[in-house]
Amino acid sequence: MEVVEASIVSKTGDPQTCEDRYCVTEHYACVIDGATDVSGNRYNGRTSGQVVAGVIAETIPLLPAGADIEEVIGIINEALLRYYDANGMYDAVRESPYTRPTAAMILYSRSRHTVWMVGDCQCMIDEEEQTNPKIVDDIIANTRSLFLEAEMLKGKTIEELLERDTGFEAVRPFIQMQYYMQNLPEPHPYGYAAVTGFPFDLGQIKTVQLRPDACSLALASDGYPFIRPTLQQSEDALQDILKRDPLCFREYKLAKGLVKGNASFDDRTYVRLRLQPR
Rank of each mutant, 00 (worst) to 15 (best):
M1S: 06
V4K: 03
V9T: 14
S10G: 08
D14E: 08
P15F: 04
T17Q: 15
C18E: 13
E19V: 00
R21T: 05
V24T: 09
T25F: 04
E26V: 04
A29N: 09
V38M: 10
Y43V: 12
G45V: 05
G45H: 07
G49I: 01
Q50K: 08
Q50W: 02
V52T: 12
A53K: 12
G54D: 15
V55I: 08
E58M: 12
P64G: 10
D68E: 11
D68K: 10
I73S: 06
G74C: 11
E78Y: 01
A79H: 00
L80K: 06
D85S: 09
G88E: 05
Y90A: 14
Y90M: 13
S96Q: 15
T99K: 14
M105K: 10
R112V: 06
V115N: 07
M117K: 03
M117P: 10
D120H: 06
E128Y: 02
I139S: 08
N142A: 14
N142P: 11
T143A: 15
F147Y: 12
L148Q: 03
F174L: 13
I175L: 07
Q176I: 08
H188R: 08
V195L: 11
F198K: 04
D201V: 05
V208P: 13
Q209W: 00
P212E: 04
D213W: 00
D222Y: 01
Y224T: 05
P225S: 14
P225K: 08
I227D: 14
P229E: 08
P229A: 04
Q233M: 09
D236G: 11
A237I: 03
L238S: 13
Q239F: 04
L247N: 04
F249K: 04
E251V: 03
E251M: 10
S264V: 01
Y270H: 11
V271S: 12
R272N: 13
L273E: 07
R274K: 13
P277V: 03
R278H: 10
